[in-house]
């Protein structure tokens, strides 16, 4: 299993993603520069990491999505390759049209940095196959624009097609308004594309993959990907 981690100017979770995939998930990972125009053969999963690509100028992810590597990332996704967008990576995926909807400013207008609970809504995707339906994870968020928005038709479609991967919940798995940190529609924390090979999520699984820092709940996302890639071989 080989991960390719894209480094944009302003990415700041790229090294965390590298550490999680290589040290915690025991895989291979390569760093890809935003000016690269191709993805090396044998790269199974592209990670668009968190951060503030291009200083969040104009809108979060708006400039990154026209950077040279994104054409190759889109091709990789169209071929069925895995793409995981975390936080700013999720914003880049919605801006690029690889995922529907958009990420608005948090309703509190605050940058929120804290652990939240996530309920697994889809346990059969390549990103979640090692989780149980309804399994609760504790994963940190760190964002100012994570308020997922899409029109009602799109939200209904996402739910009907099982494309909501995670929802914000409380410790018991209840998706109350109070357990929604940023105002996201229907407590949505992460969504999949139609084919299921692209996941965008605001919470940071790569920041909680090592039990030495007190929480390894996020490791399941990377382990799921490794299992999914093995099945393809």
């Amino acid at each position: 299993m080989r991960f390719g981690i894209v480094v944009f100017p302003g990415s700041n979770c790229d090294h965390d993603a590298w550490y999680a995939t290589t040290h915690n998930a025991d895989s291979e990972a390569i760093m890809l520069w935003h000016k690269d125009t191709s993805i090396p053969k044998g790269t199974d999963c592209i990670i668009l990491p968190g951060g503030f690509s291009y200083g969040d100028y104009l809108r979060c992810g708006a400039i990154a999505r026209v950077s040279p590597i994104m054409a190759a990332v889109t091709q990789h996704a169209k071929r069925g390759g895995y793409v995981l967008g975390i936080c700013n990576g999720f914003q880049i995926l919605t801006e690029s049209g690889l995922l529907p909807g958009a990420l608005l400013r948090n309703t509190s207008l605050n940058f929120i940095c804290k652990d939240v609970y996530l309920r697994t809504e889809n346990s059969v995707s390549p990103f979640t196959n090692s989780l149980e339906q309804g399994q609760i994870l504790r994963v940190p968020i760190a964002h100012g624009e994570g308020n997922y928005f899409a029109d009602e038709d799109t939200l209904n479609m996402l739910e009907q097609q099982g494309r909501v991967a995670f929802k914000y919940c409380d410790v018991n798995g209840n998706t109350y308004l109070e357990s929604n940190p940023n105002g996201s529609a229907r407590n949505i924390a992460g969504i999949l594309n139609e084919q299921g090979n692209v996941l965008g999520m605001m919470p940071h699984p790569e920041r909680c993959c090592d039990i030495q820092i007190g929480n390894a709940d996020g490791l399941a996302v990377f382990q799921s990907l490794i299992s999914a890639a093995e099945l393809l071989i």
Partner: peptide, 8 residues
Amino acid sequence: TIIANPIM
């Protein structure tokens, strides 16, 4: 294309 995001 870029200046605005028509979704929002």
